[in-house]
Write a protein that binds this DNA or RNA. Sequence first.
DNA 1: GTCTATAGAAAGATAGAC
DNA 2: GTCTATCTTTCTATAGAC
Lengths: 202, 202
Amino acid sequence: MPKPAKPSAKREAILDAAQRAFLEEGYAATSMDGVATGASVSKATIYAHFESKEQLFAAVMHRGCDSSFALVPPDESADARTALTVTAQRLMALLMAPKALALYRVVVAEASRSPDLARTYYENGPVRGKAAITAVIALLQRRGELAPAADAGTITDQLIGMLRAETFQRALLGLPDGRSLEDTIAAMVETLVQRFGGTAPR
Amino acid sequence: MPKPAKPSAKREAILDAAQRAFLEEGYAATSMDGVATGASVSKATIYAHFESKEQLFAAVMHRGCDSSFALVPPDESADARTALTVTAQRLMALLMAPKALALYRVVVAEASRSPDLARTYYENGPVRGKAAITAVIALLQRRGELAPAADAGTITDQLIGMLRAETFQRALLGLPDGRSLEDTIAAMVETLVQRFGGTAPR
DNA sequence: GTCTATAGAAAGATAGAC
DNA sequence: GTCTATCTTTCTATAGAC
């Protein structure tokens, strides 16, 4: 009966070691022996808690997708440029965290073999992140700082897209930084403000 | 002496089967037995041509990165909106091809263990693609259809970023399409034209 | 639940005949 | 170069004692 998700010291150690291994090596290259050693536990103990390697992977990854993407909204009084800049900085801090990058790599790699995982990741990561940013954009629109020329969701997609263009992709591939993150953010803010700026200085 | 890259029927069959396997299963989950079967060849024959699984992987993937990303430029006479739209459509056709997606997944997954591969991919894919699009942007700037407010490289990054935002990410994760590609392209074109449009109608 | 020990299958790589 | 057969290691998973 390896079902109950009761917290237990060994169980947590197994999950932690497994997460480290799966994120670093990927699913196929991770061995149960390695996880056992990493958790200072015998292999049999792992199988007392999890039915199979596949289920251990699912448990670990779904847990990783939940531990969440809290995007703190900018101060209400901030003007458009400030709000967009702060939002961008916080989003990039989330996306560029080593663990977030590793999680993304594994989810993408296993997407075809673990569709549930891909969906869970998407709903908890990108979808939540987009919702948080859309709220910021919508607020700026209501205040007349951004024109309602396009709906908030579209603007948000463009914002996120422009941010992930260079820096994120290079990080994902393990390549050294190209242009600076600050420059990318500033260019993005400028484009959105010039495009959708309402009453703001022109 | 498994070095000479002499073309040979069996050698090509091995490379083809290996490519199929690596792109579908990933590096670790691909077995040499599977490749041998897929190529209708014995395992020993593979080792007569390639020193190890790792070298076979490198050969296959580098070949895949070369077989290239030719981005045909739009007609010289096209105006900004048309040129940007056509360029976007052609770029997305390249990025969304199933093989291109599979290649990207594997390169990302193995980036930390195969830095050379990541670099090769980046130079042959994203870098070439960006160069091609930057040339288009620069031409539009010289013709006065786009303002030189930002350098062509920055505009190109924003263009690519906005395109890859939603559709590409969902495809990468194997999720069904969200908003339509046409809408994404149209919104991107509008943003860039409104932001950088020079003498064009405003 | 937790361990040691091991079963049983599959992996990467090679020997040797042709 | 190409094959069959095999070596050796490593893997997932389990049996059985405690």
